[in-house]
Amino acid sequence: MIQNMDIPAVDEGMVRLLREGDRKAVNTFVDRYGQFMYHVCYKVLLNTDEAEEATQDAVMKVIQAIENFKLKSSFKAWCYTIAFRTAIDYKRKVRKHVDLEGEYELANEDMADDNIHYDETKQGIQLLMRHLDDESRMVISLFYLEEKNIREVIALTGLTESNVKIKLFRARKEMTKHADKYFEKV
């Protein structure tokens, strides 16, 4: 858990209200962190339906365990930890083993989901990311989600700076290697 990141005052107020059982605070929390937690769950599970289920589970866990959250630490990092671990647990329980080919099929079915509109680039990137392990996929997606703010990635994942940089480099190298399969040559 990251201890040295200040919790924004708005989050502190929201956390206090959540502790008091305020229902409006639940909506605020979902509006503020629902998408982020979904992003984390999706990057582990790579499937819309499973990511949705895991996200709901993770959001409930945050609300139920809000008493355990230490106000001095980063609320976003705490949400990230819970979402990531929930998704990993979900993956272990639901899918014992899915090989890469199977995942491609799963991805293609998933991309056709009516809930989300994927353009060609998004689809290609999601497929390309399947060549990476869970942690590398998470690091690279957080890096771009946080607009290349490496400090934020470090704070969220709890990894060291050199570890994040190595993972980023290796992930992008691996993705460059396979990019031609999914995108037309420039």
């Binding site: 979904y38 949705e52 989300i116 680039t121 998004k122 290609g124 690279i140 997606s141 990019a179």
Partner: peptide
């Protein structure tokens, strides 16, 4: 492409 496609939204 990563800037455009790495993030995902519910």
């Amino acid at each position: 492409r990563l800037k455009k496609g790495a993030t995902i939204k519910a």
